[in-house]
Amino acid sequence: MATSTIPILFDKTHLTSIGERLYTQSLDLVRELVANAYDADATRVNIVAETDRIVVEDNGTGMDRAGIEQYFTIGSRFKKSYPTSRTYHRTRIGEFGIGKFAVLSLCDRFELYTRTETYAATVIFDKEDFEKREKWEVPIIEHEIGGSSKETGTRVVLYDIKKRLEVYDMDRYLTSTFPLTEPDFSLFLNERKLEPKYIVGERVTINHSSTFGKMKGEIILASLTIPRELTGIGVRVKGILVQRSTFELDQKHELMMRKITGEIRADFLPITTDRGGFIKDSPEYQYFMSFMQKKLQQVIKKLEKRSLAYSDTKSEKLLSDVLS
């Protein structure tokens, strides 16, 4: 009996299909680029959205040669090995190491320029050129560092966009997705700073520790009916909004849920690869689901009491007016 080996190969064209399958919304691709900037301790991220081009530029730490090689490593475990950033000790958002290639479903060519205090380089990724090469490699241009400037950061440019992204949609998506209330993080879209939305209403603070990890945030009993896209509790993992949920209470309490919103952060929740949902059969999510249902039921009871008290007051006033 002869024993030998066979190679395990990965076709280059799958880099595109991975992005198309994992990221069903084009806006998710922009999120990945901003998330990389956040992980690199950027305090400012500028996004320029044009008809056929998107630019995402930050003032983060930048990358040296080793950092660039790690960046282009599929499935890199760097962020799992180093889960917090060096300067602001942020919990890094990146997890799977494939998001940077997802942009290939939106464009066939992108350019990355990055600079540290001692190193600068440009990497050009052209899909057609990459697939023609025998080896898995892309051209890199290393620049000389001159002058006394200590500016650092990274700029990614997507060329010849296949599908135009509307600025209005990007604004709404990015505003709800990223932690814009953090003091050392600002996001600009076409030179306009994005600001978090403030909803007037009574707030119920959540600060709970479990065997899985901490849950922290607030449930808001809005004074007025809120827009549909803000209905439910936004669940954040590592600062990024994964989804909003009514925790299956909207069918029984549809009218009440229209006035309930808020956000909660639970970094221990396992998420799907596209970061668009949770692994719902995990024990972490099952615990979280049960906890949130109980909390929301308490809030709904409070709303019902408030509504009943308002109704009684209104009836008393009406009767008083009739008798007077």
Rank of each mutant, 00 (worst) to 15 (best):
Lys259Phe: 07
Ser210Gln: 09
Thr272Gln: 14
Glu248His: 11
Thr231Gly: 09
Leu221Phe: 04
Glu248Trp: 06
Asp267Ile: 09
Thr231Met: 15
Ser209Asn: 12
Pro270Gln: 10
Arg275Lys: 14
Ile226Arg: 11
Ser245Ile: 06
Lys259Ser: 08
Ile271Asn: 06
Leu249Pro: 03
Arg244Asp: 01
Thr272Gly: 06
Leu230Trp: 13
Lys238Leu: 06
Gly217Thr: 06
Ile226Met: 09
Val237Gln: 06
Thr272Asp: 10
Ile240Arg: 12
Val237Ile: 10
Ile260Ser: 03
Glu229Ser: 14
Asp250Cys: 08
Ile264Ala: 09
Ile226Leu: 13
Thr225His: 14
Glu263Ile: 04
Leu255Thr: 11
Thr246Asp: 08
Lys252Trp: 03
Glu218Val: 03
Leu269Cys: 11
Ile264Trp: 00
Val235Arg: 03
Asp250His: 14
Ser209Tyr: 09
Met257Ser: 07
Lys252Tyr: 14
Phe247His: 13
Lys214Asp: 09
Ile233Tyr: 03
Val237Tyr: 08
Lys214His: 07
Phe268Gly: 07
Thr246Gly: 11
Gly213Arg: 06
Phe278Asp: 10
Val242Phe: 02
Leu255Gln: 14
Gln243Ser: 11
Gly262Gln: 05
Pro270Val: 08
Gly262Cys: 06
Ser223Ala: 13
Arg228Pro: 02
Leu249Tyr: 06
Arg236Lys: 15
Ser210Gly: 04
Pro227Leu: 13
Ile233Pro: 00
Lys216Trp: 01
Phe212Pro: 00
Phe278Met: 13
Asp274Asn: 10
Gly239Phe: 08
Asp267Trp: 03
Gly234Lys: 10
Thr246Cys: 12
Val242Thr: 15
Arg265Phe: 00
Ile260Cys: 03
Gly262Val: 04
Val242Cys: 10
Glu263Cys: 01
Gln243Thr: 14
Arg275Ala: 10
Ile240Pro: 00
Lys214Cys: 02
Leu224Ala: 13
Ile264His: 02
Gly232Asp: 12
Ser210Lys: 06
Gly262Phe: 05
Met215Cys: 04
Pro270Glu: 07
Gly277Glu: 07
Lys216Phe: 01
Pro227Asp: 10
Ser210Val: 05
Asp267His: 07
Ala266Met: 04
Arg244Gln: 06
Leu224Met: 09
Thr261Cys: 07
Leu255Cys: 00
Gln243Phe: 02
Phe268Leu: 08
Leu249Thr: 04
Leu241Gly: 12
Ala222Asp: 06
Lys216His: 03
Phe212Trp: 12
Lys216Ile: 08
Gly217Tyr: 08
Phe268Gln: 05
Gly213Asp: 03
Met215Pro: 00
Gly234Leu: 07
Val242Tyr: 00
Ser223Thr: 12
Lys214Arg: 13
Thr246Glu: 11
Leu221Met: 15
Arg236Glu: 15
Glu263Val: 05
Glu263Trp: 02
Asp250Ser: 15
Gly239Met: 09
Gln243Trp: 02
Asp274Ala: 10
Leu221Ile: 12
Thr273Phe: 14
Thr261Glu: 02
Thr211Ile: 15
Thr261Met: 00
Pro270Thr: 04
Lys252Gly: 13
Gly213Cys: 08
Ile240Phe: 05
Lys216Ala: 04
His253Cys: 03
Ser223Leu: 11
Gly262Arg: 04
Ile233Glu: 05
Ala222Lys: 08
Ser210Leu: 05
Gly239Thr: 12
Leu221Gly: 00
Asp274Tyr: 09
Gly276Pro: 05
Lys216Thr: 09
Thr225Asp: 15
Glu254Ser: 15
Ile220Asn: 01
Thr261Ala: 04
Ser209Cys: 03
Met257Thr: 14
Met256Pro: 02
Thr246Asn: 09
Lys216Gln: 12
Ile220Cys: 03
